[in-house]
Design a binder for these strands. Structure first.
Length: 709
RNA sequence: GGGCGUUUAGCUCAGUGGUAGAGCGUUCCGUUCACAUCGGAGAGGUCGCAGGUCCGAUCCCUGCAACGCCCACCA
């Protein structure tokens, strides 16, 4: 006899344990695979959640979507592998940990790199355990026996091999290039970790010999000895390329050199500018083209160097007004345009203004890698859902710039390289055996203290996790079927997986990319700790049951778009769970004595139109799932169970069940049971717990998770 | 400066070339033995605006507007 209420919290842990014990999360142990060892594989590599905090609503959503796909594939007889993982999340985690240290009144500067690394290691291992428990409570039917951590030795080995190969193929170089430097975090970034923020600042016009130049950054101008103008600019036709001009500058007389370069916009300012190659990417490019010297003006902490004379040691914000004042006194300040609108680049984490610096970093030459990715995407070897991401990806790949993969942080995969202090070069040294510089012979070499950009290793995740190159799993499950991840990280991750996957294995890493949007709060705002509107999925599962949360995250959520999640919605779907339970309860109560479901069913329902109608619906739902229209599939089965099965068919059969002959009762019961079990099957990918529980009541000893779709 | 997305019921959102849908909210009725975490009935939308294609457009095309997002080395 079923209880009148369904209590998800009591049922879920037991059900999950039963699933896990069954071994069916592991494709090798699936009954369908035992029957047909050549069953078609279906693979999803889980985007590894960061092991630096709790799961958020976004995790709940992507876990649900991936679980729907994998459960459907499993029930469809595929060799279904969903490989879970955890991400050390280099820089992100170090930031989280530094904040924790700060709260405890400690600082990373009080400890060695090794101590810091050890502490963060322990921290992530603790988080990882909690994160895994969270995934279990969300019902993730992933194969824990294959779980990977991004710092696992075999993953690191794969990453190192790729690094080496890039070097051998001359796609890797170490060079003095301008990088985006955060003076707070003391590390360089790639172009993706930078946020462009529009601001209004004064634009200063300054007298530079016979020229007037405009700048927003007078504090960088101390060392400017080159004045650049467009070769076709009639205003400066009298000045020849390379001409030297003596002039009075901020801290005294200098000799400036005229440079002609068509990167100059004649319409901007006065059409003449001086360049600071060390602290500006555009200026750096000009200096490269004309082979000009570069001088550092601002140090790594954001303070002016001795070249600034009396301003040396000052922070930018402090120095700028003072420098402007001095220019004014010297009569070098022509005018100030107070509300000049421009874009300032900031650290995406702390908002510190990025100070470009020239630094030695490891760069990957991206154009050749991107070319292959472009071909694969254009040829539709990889497809996108929603489709418009294809264009977005292509556009980014076509404009790709070289990738700085070194980070000056402790938490990450160490870069396996040696640096020569004599000649300044860097060389890959996987085994850490190099004793002398192969270029200059100097023994003055040391280990590169830097770590990889987390995305350099993440970009190799699909093949690294499957044991490339020799692993059995790699041969079976690669290329994977679907990469389901956040639209937000398409450039950070998806494009790089495509490029690195193609490069390393010669094959695409996945056939389909499915991108989901953000989970927003009920009012449609982005969740953030500062707004105090973060929804903890674990609280919701406790309150309403995991199934209700899952289907609330799916229905009404089209691919790629963000979803506003309100508790009202989840409560509505909790009520749906109650409904399912009570339909089942009603049917259960009316089971004829001695009824043998397995035997009776076929002939009793074969000619019922209700059965045919459900089969038609099933085909629709399957089609929706296969085309990633989970929102439609979920809504249809929801609607069917409530408004067709419960509202109409159950009501219609009551007469036969209560007043019919034995034969009529049996037939009626057989129909209802059959429709119920079939609906449960169709709903199972979306609401796995309650469907499994109810199925077990009707078919003890069997498991819905591996029933044939 | 480019590119993209969105605009449908009070709210959050589905959806379709042929009388507009869901959840929540709301109004009225209902203590029948599956379910009050329920059932029944209802109100509520000129499907952003303006053109065009079509027998017919909310859906296709063009333009516009509002909102949002992404990309971009004009100092």
């Amino acid at each position: 006899m079923m209880e009148p209420r369904y209590e998800g919290n009591e049922v879920e842990p037991r059900i999950y344990e039963a699933w896990e014990k069954s071994g069916y999360f592991n494709p090798d142990k699936l009954p369908a695979v035992a029957e047909d060892p050549n069953a078609e594989p279906f693979t999803i590599i889980m985007p590894p959640p960061n092991a630096n905090g709790l799961l958020h609503a976004g995790h709940a959503m992507f876990i649900t979507i991936e679980d729907i796909m994998i459960r459907y594939a499993r029930m469809s007889g595929k060799k279904a592998l969903w490989l879970p993982g955890a991400d050390h999340a280099g820089f992100e985690t170090q930031i989280v940990y530094e904040r924790k240290l700060e709260k405890e009144g400690r600082s990373r500067f009080d400890m060695t790199r090794e101590e810091l690394y050890k502490e963060i290691w322990d921290f992530t291992q603790e988080n990882k355990v909690r994160m895994e428990a969270g995934l279990r409570s969300l019902g993730a039917s992933c194969d824990w026996s294959r779980e990977k951590f991004t710092l696992d030795p075999e993953i690191v080995k794969t990453v190192y091999a790729t690094f080496k190969r890039l070097a051998d193929d001359e796609l890797l170089y170490r060079g003095k290039r301008i990088v985006s430097w955060c003076s707070k975090h003391q590390t360089a970034f790639s172009d993706l970790e930078i946020e462009d923020v529009e601001r209004v600042d004064p634009l200063y016009y300054m007298q530079y010999g016979p020229f007037v130049i405009a700048t927003t950054r007078p504090e960088t101008k101390f060392g400017d000895k080159y004045v650049v103008m467009h070769p076709d600019d009639p205003r400066y036709a009298q000045y020849k390329d390379g001409e030297m001009i003596a002039l009075e500058w901020i801290n005294g007389p200098i000799t400036a050199t005229v440079i002609k370069d068509d990167a100059i916009d004649m319409a901007f300012g006065t059409g003449a500018m001086t360049i600071t190659p060390w602290h500006d990417a555009a200026d750096f490019a000009i200096a490269e083209r004309h082979d000009l010297p570069r001088e550092q003006i601002i140090d790594e902490r954001g303070k002016l160097l001795p070249v600034a004379g009396e301003f040396a040691g000052m922070k930018i914000a402090e120095a700028r007004p003072k420098i402007v004042e001095k220019l004014r006194e010297k009569g070098l300040l022509v005018k100030t345009d107070e509300d000049y609108k421009h874009v300032v680049r900031m650290c995406y984490k702390c908002g510190t203004i990025i100070e470009p610096q020239i630094k030695d970093q490891w760069f990957v030459q991206m154009k050749p890698l991107a070319a292959k990715a472009i071909a694969a995407i254009e040829g539709d070897s990889i497809t996108f859902t929603p489709e418009h991401y294809k264009k977005i990806c292509l556009h980014w790949l076509e404009n790709i710039i070289d990738w700085n993969i070194s980070r000056q942080i402790a938490w990450g995969i160490p870069i396996p390289a040696k640096l020569c202090d004599a000649c300044g070069r860097g060389m890959v040294d996987l085994e850490d055996t190099m004793k002398a510089c192969p270029y200059c012979g100097s023994s003055d070499i040391r280990k590169d203290p830097d770590t990889f950009d987390t995305w350099f290793s993440s970009g190799q995740w699909p093949f690294a996790t499957l044991g490339y190159p020799d692993g059995k799993d790699f041969k079976t499950f690669y290329p994977t079927s679907v990469m389901e991840t956040a639209g937000e990280i398409i450039f950070f991750w998806v494009t790089r997986m495509i490029m690195l996957g193609l490069y390393a294995t010669g094959e695409i890493p996945f056939h389909n990319v499915y991108l989901h949007g953000l989970v927003l709060d009920a009012k449609g705002r982005k969740m953030s700790k500062s707004k105090n509107n973060v929804i903890d999925p674990m609280e919701l599962t406790k309150k309403y049951g995991t199934d209700a949360l899952r289907i609330a995250l799916v229905i009404g959520n089209t691919p790629g778009t963000s979803l506003a999640l309100s508790e009202d919605r989840i409560r509505g779907y909790r009520n749906f769970a109650t409904k399912i339970w009570n339909v089942a309860r009603f049917i259960d109560m009316n089971r004829p004595a001695g009824y043998d479901g397995a035997k009776a069913k076929g002939e009793l329902i074969a000619d019922r139109k209700e059965h045919d109608e459900l089969m038609a619906l099933k085909r629709e739902i399957a089609a929706h799932i296969e085309t990633y229209e989970f929102h439609l599939a979920a809504e249809k089965i929801y609607h069917y169970i409530w408004h067709t099965l419960a509202d109409k068919i159950v009501e219609q059969e009551k007469a036969a069940l209560h007043d019919g002959t034995d034969a009529e009762r049996t037939a009626s019961y057989a129909l209802l049971e059959s429709l119920l079990l079939e609906s449960l099957k169709m709903l199972h990918p979306f609401m796995p717990f309650i469907t499994e529980e109810v199925f077990g009541i009707f078919r003890p000893g069997r498991m819905l998770m591996v029933e044939k779709w």
